[in-house]
Simulated scan of single mutants.
Amino acid sequence: MCTHTPACPTADSPDHEAAIVVAGHPEQGWSLLCNGVLLFEDTGELLPDGRVIAPHRHLTVVA
């Protein structure tokens, strides 16, 4: 799907979130990456094959 040079990581790559945003909708809380991944602001993801990756934010400890 990606036409960038060098090519962006595929949706199956461990670093798939590094792909370039082709449609950003911050007001709705999501972005479409050039590899077909929908990335949500809560860090959840929807992969092109329909798999869901649950939000995976790092917990912040407040002292």
Score class of each variant (00 low, 15 high):
residue 17 E to Q: 07
residue 56 H to V: 02
residue 34 C to I: 04
residue 60 T to H: 13
residue 13 S to T: 02
residue 1 M to C: 09
residue 7 A to F: 02
residue 26 P to S: 11
residue 45 E to I: 01
residue 54 A to L: 03
residue 59 L to H: 13
residue 27 E to R: 15
residue 52 V to A: 10
residue 13 S to P: 04
residue 32 L to H: 05
residue 8 C to Q: 04
residue 29 G to C: 10
residue 4 H to D: 13
residue 22 V to E: 09
residue 8 C to V: 03
residue 6 P to G: 06
residue 25 H to E: 11
residue 32 L to M: 15
residue 29 G to W: 06
residue 27 E to M: 14
residue 34 C to L: 04
residue 14 P to V: 05
residue 58 H to Q: 12
residue 25 H to G: 08
residue 37 V to P: 00
residue 40 F to R: 01
residue 31 S to I: 01
residue 14 P to L: 07
residue 24 G to M: 03
residue 52 V to M: 08
residue 15 D to F: 08
residue 20 I to Y: 03
residue 12 D to R: 13
residue 47 L to D: 13
residue 21 V to N: 10
residue 38 L to K: 05
residue 47 L to G: 08
residue 15 D to L: 06
residue 3 T to C: 09
residue 9 P to W: 07
residue 13 S to Q: 09
residue 60 T to I: 14
residue 27 E to L: 14
residue 17 E to D: 12
residue 3 T to D: 07
residue 9 P to H: 07
residue 40 F to M: 02
residue 15 D to K: 15
residue 23 A to R: 05
residue 51 R to W: 12
residue 56 H to G: 12
residue 24 G to V: 03
residue 60 T to Q: 08
residue 44 G to M: 00
residue 52 V to F: 09
residue 4 H to M: 07
residue 4 H to F: 05
residue 37 V to I: 09
residue 9 P to N: 04
residue 51 R to L: 14
residue 43 T to W: 04
residue 43 T to R: 10
residue 33 L to T: 00
residue 22 V to S: 08
residue 25 H to Q: 14
residue 31 S to K: 02
residue 8 C to K: 08
residue 51 R to D: 15
residue 5 T to D: 11
residue 50 G to V: 09
residue 50 G to D: 15
residue 45 E to T: 10
residue 6 P to L: 05
residue 25 H to T: 10
residue 8 C to N: 06
residue 29 G to P: 13
residue 40 F to T: 01
residue 48 P to W: 10
residue 49 D to K: 08
residue 27 E to P: 08
residue 29 G to H: 11
residue 38 L to Y: 07
residue 47 L to M: 14
residue 5 T to A: 12
residue 42 D to N: 15
residue 58 H to R: 14
residue 48 P to E: 12
residue 49 D to Y: 13
residue 16 H to Q: 08
